[in-house]
Design a protein around this nucleic acid. Structure first.
Length: 304
DNA sequence: AATGCAAGCAACCGCATACGC
DNA sequence: AGCGTATGCGGTTGCTTGCAT
């Protein structure tokens, strides 16, 4: 007996979304907020399954999605984050405002992994390739290589946690990320990275447009996460890239490394203090390149 | 102009996990 | 504690587009 399907497939639309469907979904979410994905299609008048609606919203319709090419800086950050986190696309996306995990995943698979390979680096392990030809076909090049279906290929990249003496990964400071415990949010759950980590100025995740208009959320249209009001800190790397961290006083906001599953952070105050410590620790490691191993362990510890 | 191939990307699928009862 | 449900995540698929022949 298999698991019951998430939704009845019969009579539901599949494939590319039409403009009308987009409009219906957008309108509904603007009026009622995100969440309740399962019942949303019915209430919004859509013949889609909830999963499909969620995906469409998260990856395409959200107003804070940043369109356009991924910049070299973003590329660099993705590569560095990947070397630490592996294929944790949602975590990586959390550091790239306006970018979705799907987008980053696609970008990695189509561009970055190829680039690394051409540079003689194994994109899975970030180690130097010794003898493999640089022109290895990627997974999609040969249809003949059609993958065996499904079976748990999940860690084909493994986790880049393998210690590597030679690897001198320089880690940029993660961009400041807002982790909100569903501030005034209609969303009942708070374990979504996207919801948790949204901080972009136009973010609608975890808040309805109505709430934005009413000023219930701290990032309205003019909110700038880089505004240098209070408790900001900066880090400038050796390439003169400047990163700004934000430690908010607001109890509902904590600066975010990945807090997924960090249920041991029970109160906002404790979250705040703990995160400050985490960042402090992270900074020290960042500033001390020979602590590469420690840095990796630290990054991993955030994932537990 | 027609065809084939590869790249890019949106969408789907199944599993993992948080959450509520 | 155990179970069912809802949601999130990452791997994979398939359609579309652009380029080469």
């Amino acid at each position: 007996m298999g698991r019951a399907p998430c939704c009845a497939k019969v009579g539901l639309h599949r494939g590319p979304w039409t403009l009308k469907e987009d409009a219906l979904l957008t309108k509904y979410i603007q009026a009622h907020g995100e969440g309740q994905w399962r019942s949303l299609p019915k209430r919004a008048g859509l013949l889609r399954c909830g999963k499909s609606c969620r995906l469409r919203w998260m990856n395409y319709l959200r107003p804070d999605i940043k369109r356009g090419n991924i910049t070299p800086e973003e590329d660099d950050l993705i590569i560095r984050m990947h070397s630490l986190l592996g294929n944790r696309w949602s975590l990586i996306a959390g550091r790239l405002p306006g970018r979705t995990d799907n987008e980053i995943k696609n970008h990695w698979n189509t561009h970055l992994s190829k680039r690394l390979r051409n540079q003689g680096t194994d994109p899975s392990t970030h180690k130097k390739l010794s003898s493999l030809p640089s022109s290895l076909p990627n997974s999609r090049t040969k249809k003949a290589n059609k993958k065996k279906k499904k079976g748990k290929a999940r860690d084909n990249n493994g986790v880049a946690a393998e210690k590597d003496e030679e690897k001198k990964t320089i880690v940029y400071l993660p961009k400041p990320v807002r982790v909100t415990a569903c501030i005034s949010s209609p969303i009942p759950r708070s374990d979504s990275n996207k919801n948790l980590n949204s901080f972009d100025s136009n973010s609608a995740s975890g808040s309805t447009s109505q709430e934005k208009e009413e000023g219930k959320v701290p990032w309205g249209e003019n909110y700038n996460y880089n505004n240098n009001n209070n408790n900001n800190f900066t880090y400038v790397d050796e390439n003169d890239h400047e990163f700004v961290g934000l430690l908010e006083e607001d109890n509902d906001l904590v600066n975010g490394s990945d807090m997924e599953g960090q249920s041991e952070f029970p109160t906002s105050a404790e979250q705040h203090g703990t995160l400050e410590k985490l960042y402090e620790e992270y900074f020290q490691l960042l500033n001390n390149q020979q602590n590469q191993d420690e840095l990796e362990s630290f990054a991993e510890s955030l994932l537990v």
